[in-house]
Amino acid sequence: MKPLTTEQIRAVIAKGKFRDNLFKAVGVFCLAFALLVIVALIADMLIKGSERFTLDFFLNFASRRATQAGILSAWVGSLLVMLVTALAAVPLGVAAGLYLEEYAKRNWITNIIEINITNLAAVPSIVYGLLALGIFVYQFGFGQSILSAGLTLALLILPIIIVATREAIRAIPAMIREGSMAVGATRWQTCRYHIVPYAMPGILTGVIIGLARAIGETAPIITIGALTFIAFLPPVPFSEIDGGATAGMFDWVMSPFTVMPIQIFNWTSRPDPAFEVNAAAAGFVLMAMVLSMNAVAIYLRYKMRKNIKW
């Protein structure tokens, strides 16, 4: 083969560069499309719902009149359900991930467990709802309560947290683990002083992604029977309730509730178009809740990662 002339080399480079630019253009287009969709969605809800963004909207219970209806019980319900979900799913998920990465022997049982976890992540959320209806609501007698909803969503996001935990742990170099074991630490000491703290940024990201998924879930919550019209809040711990009694520390977990997505769903299915405005406004608030959770996750991860390097 004869060596290429300068012109030929330039022609080859020009061809290559053309393809570079072509791909760049396609990439920018795809990105812009994705971005545009979300911006359009948010803007649409914001404009449609703009007349409802008053303090009353956040402080009013549901009502038959659209202009007086608010999301108080919904956002309080969502926050409380998330609290239960996090309290149940985070310790379970982190412990399970830690066990699988640091303690479990590699054998067929662990393999089955691993395949199972992957499959769990793919189970449709309504199926979790059915399971929870049978187990939490009836079998355990938790009823249609915040507790039932929180535990259901905890099951739903457990695989996400387990996988995130395992990945964060796997990113820790073996030499850190060996360095700890070499001074005579036990597995538990190594986990407590090193593995868990160093994996924390990754775990946290997984937790928030999971919670962001859970806060928007509707199907399993409807299945277990959350109310769509609710005009009271769960009892505040140690506050006075009807009949002069005092609410217990955890009475609120057994309270009926509603959550944001259900409130939105309820409003969109009303014949009166005025409720569409409420739905759009509530949708925007839900979106804001999810985005601010993500923002907190990013900030915390950035802060924690600053001090972890090897």
Partner: peptide, 10 residues
């Protein structure tokens, strides 16, 4: 034990 690559903890 001291390792091949320095492995201080973060």
């Amino acid at each position: 034990m001291v390792f091949q690559k320095p492995n201080p903890f973060p």
